[in-house]
């Protein structure tokens, strides 16, 4: 274990922490923006609660455009925007902006799919009882879709872990970046292996937690 010097330990810990920050912050932001977007898409879709093509089509188009842009290009392309929001275009904080943006678009679609999975009959029953549209969304749609929403979030978090490795390109740091810099560029395979194992454990843990939560919340 000669490679695991105190300096390296510190680097690993720091990278781990950076990954958590990047993934955690962008998850929170993308859920906070992605869910309203998904609800907007769901509600304004043809045959939805308030069909409206003038909202549905442009929003859908924007979401698709963001989803089809490769992350590494997105990251560079939105640097001016990142500077505006984060005050800087490099570092961990700056990396959160493109990560959150990519994940928001990704989640908006996954969330929309989860909402579509809700049995239309339950919504119809609520309409027949005289529920308002807001009540239908808050008391039927979101609660019934909750397990699906959580499953979607789990998928997004795992994808964010792998996207965050690319954040090294703008100095975002994190485990992936550490693996590239030491494992690949300085030829320290032990560092590479450690990083990969840590990432695998992290992903496994998150996935298991997500699955457990979904099981707990659904009563099917």
């Amino acid at each position: 274990m000669s490679w695991l010097t105190p300096t390296m330990q510190e680097l690993l810990l720091e990278a781990f922490w950076e990954t958590l920050i990047m993934v955690g912050a962008s998850t929170v932001i993308s859920v906070a923006i992605g869910l309203p977007l998904a609800l907007l898409l769901y509600v304004t879709a043809p045959g939805g609660l308030s069909p409206n093509g003038w909202i549905n089509r442009p929003v859908g188009l924007l979401v698709n455009a963001l989803r089809s842009t490769p992350f590494i290009i997105l990251m560079v392309a939105i640097i001016p925007f990142t500077r505006l929001v984060a005050g800087t275009s490099i570092g961990t904080t700056a990396a959160i902006v493109p990560l959150a943006l990519a994940a928001t678009a990704f989640l908006a679609r996954l969330f929309e799919n989860a909402l579509r999975e809700v049995e239309p009959g339950v919504i119809e029953a609520a309409r027949a009882m005289g529920a308002t549209r807001l009540q239908i969304v808050t008391k039927v749609l979101v609660p019934e879709a909750l397990p699906g929403l959580i499953a979607a979030t789990t998928v997004a978090v795992v994808s964010l872990m792998s996207f965050s490795a690319m954040a090294g390109a703008i100095g975002g740091g994190g485990l992936g970046d550490l693996g590239i810099r030491f494992g690949y560029q300085r030829f320290m395979p032990e560092v590479m292996a450690t990083v990969v194992i840590l990432l695998i454990l992290l992903v496994q843990g998150l996935q298991s937690f997500g699955d457990w939560l979904v099981r707990r919340l659904s009563h099917r």
């Binding site: 119809e124 029953a125 005289g130």
Partner: peptide, 17 residues
């Protein structure tokens, strides 16, 4: 008015959660 009209469905349409 709908609150004064009950409705029962073929596939029950209950909230699973």
């Amino acid at each position: 008015a709908r609150r004064g009209i009950g409705m029962v469905f073929q596939h029950f349409n209950l909230h699973s959660r």
